[in-house]
Design a protein around this nucleic acid. Structure first.
Length: 556
DNA sequence: TTAGGGTTAG
């Protein structure tokens, strides 16, 4: 039968085919010398890229003497989307030495690649090159710069790029709002949201995604509900991204009633939305119900993919029994997903949290492909069991094998140090993280360090570490950890200093106030205890009578 | 006058 290839050619660059059909078309392209035409060369190259045949794409590129900017950009993009970042950057460098100069789309592509490769250094170099090319006014370049800086947590840089644009378009506003959203900077996101509307721009689903992400906990539930209402007004609530994000948002706000309602409005939820309801339910402490959702999904004939299996395994790891988790292991095996790195890492985590470290270690050992996620999960597991030295060995071996540690690796290592009480090793890893790997310490790292130093009674050192290394306002969790140490060591002098930081930056909450009140009570400072009690009771907190005071000293 | 390329979810 005649294969109507000519009819396929018009949509060649968007065509995803079966392997045999791809081979046929490949043969056709060679037979007809189609790729010698500069226009078709690009289309064919993109066709190869979309069909995961990057080698043919490269061959075609090499054999095309007259390369247009389209051809260059298409191959750079093909490498970047295949996460072959080194190849993408090498090709970009070749381009700089060729007669074709990069345009705004080339820069947008490599900027995105540098952020996906977590490479801040390259990003800054590219930003400089964009500036020198005079492309910093371009919307396509600048929106990508805003997104890339935000993805890497450099929100100040993102904001600087954004403010440099006089009349930003919708995509630029959305990129900036999304950047703030990822960091939970709700106020700033809302401010931009209001400003863009004053400028006459109508928000769209991307805008709403950015805002929903900024709703981090129950204290801002009401704002979340207003954002939800705005989605209804815009008519974007049935968008699958919006649905799944609303489910996650209500779960973070511990408001499962609303999460279920959003979920039920969806006739055919996609896998991401199923995943959101499963992880949300589990996050709110009901892993049994989370597994019921998984069963329901299967009854409806939906087949889970590796990320969804990993989510279900995380729910299983919250249970006291290993049986559901091992059943999911069987499910993954039957569907051929047990060797997927995402699934195996979740299995390691699940088995160790359910009390079967040995089974988790077996899974880890049999993994054919390991990445930093799986390495982090075995380090965490070993740490959890107090086997710090084995965790350290895995870490060193991973370095030798060329793995690049990330912030979660150091969280796992510091956690292992905490469980084993290894203060000096903790200090050492904390230092190496910054000096050797250039990873800035995050809130979690500081909390582990505070706990570790607290164990040895080195409270001053912990305090100095916080004030020297972080800019105000320090995340309240770090001060909270130090406050607990002050309580344990009865260091009321330092507790006062910590309290002044907390109150000075409006970071105090009822938990810290109760902790402080107990310390003041133990210290006999009843005037301060009463002041805090009045404050707590005025906020109608449910702490009847004096029961929140646990001090052993008598209340006068 | 043929081409594509910038912001979203687990």
């Amino acid at each position: 039968m005649f294969i109507p290839f000519h009819s396929l050619l018009s949509q060649l660059s968007k065509l995803k085919l079966t392997i045999s059909r791809t081979k046929e078309l490949h043969a056709f392209v060679i037979r007809t010398h189609l790729s010698r035409d500069p226009f078709y060369a690009t289309r064919v190259l993109r066709f190869y890229a979309i069909n995961d045949d990057i080698i043919s794409a490269r061959n075609l590129f090499d054999k095309t003497p007259q390369r247009s900017i389209y051809l260059w950009n298409s191959l750079i993009r093909a490498y970047a989307s295949a996460h072959k970042f080194t190849d993408a950057f090498f090709l970009f460098k070749d381009m700089l030495y060729s007669e074709i100069k990069p345009d705004n789309f080339t820069f947008a592509c490599v900027v995105r690649a540098s952020s996906e490769n977590f490479d801040v250094h390259s990003l800054r170099v590219l930003h400089g090159a964009i500036f020198l090319s005079g492309l910093h006014w371009d919307f396509i370049c600048s929106s990508q710069l805003v997104s890339a800086y935000s993805r890497l947590g450099c929100i100040a840089d993102a904001s600087k790029v954004f403010s440099g644009i006089t009349d930003p378009d919708l995509v630029l506003w959305n990129s900036m709002i999304s950047g703030y959203g990822c960091l939970g900077e709700l106020e700033k996101g809302l401010e931009l949201f209001s400003r863009m509307q004053k400028m006459g721009l109508r928000p769209d689903e991307y805008t709403m995604v950015g805002l929903i992400k900024a709703i981090y906990d129950p204290s801002v539930l009401e704002i979340g509900e207003s954002i939800h209402a705005f989605c209804l007004k815009l008519g974007v609530e049935s968008n699958s991204h919006i649905t799944s994000l609303l489910v996650s948002m209500y779960s973070r706000c511990k408001c499962m009633g609303l999460a279920f309602r959003v979920f039920e409005c969806r006739v055919e939820p996609d896998l991401v939305t199923w995943s959101a309801i499963i992880s949300g339910t589990s996050l709110c402490g009901n892993s049994v119900k989370a597994l019921d959702f998984f069963r329901e999904m299967n009854m409806k004939g939906r087949k889970a993919d590796p990320p969804l299996i990993a989510t279900v395994l995380t729910a299983c790891s919250q249970l006291a029994t290993v049986q559901p988790g091992s059943e999911i292991h069987g499910y993954a095996f039957r569907h051929g997903y047990h060797m997927e790195v995402m699934v195996s890492s979740a299995l390691v985590d699940m088995y160790s949290k359910c009390g079967f470290l040995e089974l988790g270690y077996q899974v880890y050992k049999t993994m054919t492909f390991k990445n930093i996620v799986s390495i982090n999960s075995i380090i965490s597991s070993l740490g959890l069991y107090g086997l710090a030295s084995q965790a350290f060995q895995i870490f060193e071996k991973a370095l030798v094998e060329g793995h690049k540690p990330d912030e979660a690796t150091f969280s796992a290592l510091l956690c292992a140090c905490c469980h084993a009480g290894l203060v000096n090793d903790g200090r050492k890893y904390f230092r190496r993280m910054k000096d050797q790997f250039g990873i800035p310490a995050n809130t979690e790292h500081y909390i582990y360090m505070v706990k570790l130093l607290g164990m040895e009674g080195q409270l001053r050192e912990a305090y100095e570490l916080i004030v020297q290394s972080l800019q105000e306002p320090v995340d309240s969790g770090i001060w909270g950890a130090l406050l607990s140490c002050c309580d344990a060591h009865r260091n009321y002098e330092l507790a006062d200093i910590v309290a002044s930081h907390l109150f000075g930056n409006k970071l105090e909450n009822s938990r810290y106030k109760i902790m402080l009140a107990n310390m003041y009570a133990s210290d006999g400072r009843w005037d301060l205890v009463n002041k805090l009690r009045v404050d707590l009771e005025s906020k109608e907190l449910k702490h009847p009578g004096k029961s929140w005071i646990t001090s052993t000293k008598p209340f006068p």
